[in-house]
Design a protein around this nucleic acid. Sequence first.
DNA 1: CTAACATTTTTCCAACTGGTCAAAATTCTT
DNA 2: AAGAATTTTGACCAGTTGGAAAAATGTTAG
Lengths: 235, 235
Amino acid sequence: MVPTKVKNADTSVTIEVDGKPVGKASAKARPLTRIQREKQNVILEAALDVFAVHGFRGSTIDQIADVAGMSKPNLLYYFPRKEEIHRRLISELLVTWLAPLREMDADGDPFPEIRSYIRRKLEMARDYPRESRLFANEMLQGAPHIIEMIEIDLKNLVDEKAGVLLGWMDEGKLARADPYHLIFSIWATTQHYADFDVQVRAVLGPSRGGEGRFEDAARYLEQLFLYGLTPRAKV
Amino acid sequence: MVPTKVKNADTSVTIEVDGKPVGKASAKARPLTRIQREKQNVILEAALDVFAVHGFRGSTIDQIADVAGMSKPNLLYYFPRKEEIHRRLISELLVTWLAPLREMDADGDPFPEIRSYIRRKLEMARDYPRESRLFANEMLQGAPHIIEMIEIDLKNLVDEKAGVLLGWMDEGKLARADPYHLIFSIWATTQHYADFDVQVRAVLGPSRGGEGRFEDAARYLEQLFLYGLTPRAKV
DNA sequence: CTAACATTTTTCCAACTGGTCAAAATTCTT
DNA sequence: AAGAATTTTGACCAGTTGGAAAAATGTTAG
């Protein structure tokens, strides 16, 4: 009874015995060829385009293959199922997505730290809007594919950073406020510029809806998080 | 050549002449029967459930019919096409959605006004999360069905309210800040609790993720918008 | 150059999709 | 209670969808 290699192109090589899959065989997995690496990236790029707009169910393999410039069966040669593509995108995403928060440094001072956290998130909204929308789509659906990661990895990270924020508050360097909702409000206000981009642009109009809107947003948010909207004596 | 009534069940009765639709005939439209009103509502409810999670393309008539507890052809008797259902939901939505902002009163004082605007939006996130998600889904897709309404009605309303905010700033009752981004930040922070509900709950954990989260959010946001995060001497 | 492997294309399929239609069942009106 | 109108159902259809299989074509290490 000799195991049979069924496919190589996919990252996760499937091994069968008597026609039944017996799990990944990392030992047997060959290194990806040049073409495999390139094509997988092309596909993931295309899939990001499509999934970000239509969500998982609303996207079709045909659509993705079309954007990727290849035939559907050819695409399926690299990712044997639609879910596989989505899984890859989503899991890569979470790492990238949490990076800015990870960088928030307990040894720094709260305002520079929060300020640059907001900046980084805003830059991500500007430079990676598709990723933001992919994430938003997943959330809207109840995060079916990443709920455990959210409940464990994300929660742990946020718990830790909430602790950092509380520390700063104890030192009197930061106003006392719910650290969790503080983090939520940073997420919300920054990702809004990616997820609701159409609305933002439509409301700002042609004159103010250009690239400058991110600078305006950064300035405004900085003020909001620093001082709120209470008028101050003199600036 | 006598016009023929083709359907009555739909709100928009179609009249045909020689088999070609010649537009709505509000004159001929009979009042909806009891069953029609009831069933249409059942369908719209079900569709809201489904569309809010899966978006337009990702939702199927079968799914909606299933949730509505009727057969697909029966559902199609009331709404002859999928788009019709979606259109109805979306257009009803926009009216409801803008109501809280409309209520912001130029003659009031800025802080009570902004404060209750935030409360109202937060209540909507709590009580109408499906509507919020339907809206978010539409935005993520680039608002294909409501772009003109966004560009005209919404923009006009926001322009007007931005004027109100600027007025308050001129009077020195409100810190000078970009009024458009101010409004965006209220939208973002409040709708976040509907659209990213899973995440919020997962991060807060069972202890703090209960219904109380909306009260916590309200308290936090109030502080944020009022004073920001700069520590104040004494509360 | 060629055998072994990787890639691509062609063809196909079963399940699902949005939607039609006529007949049957129900409800309403008189 | 009967006839008319409305509502519901079941059978059906053409197009789309995710995916399988195999043949055809490319690529590359020896």
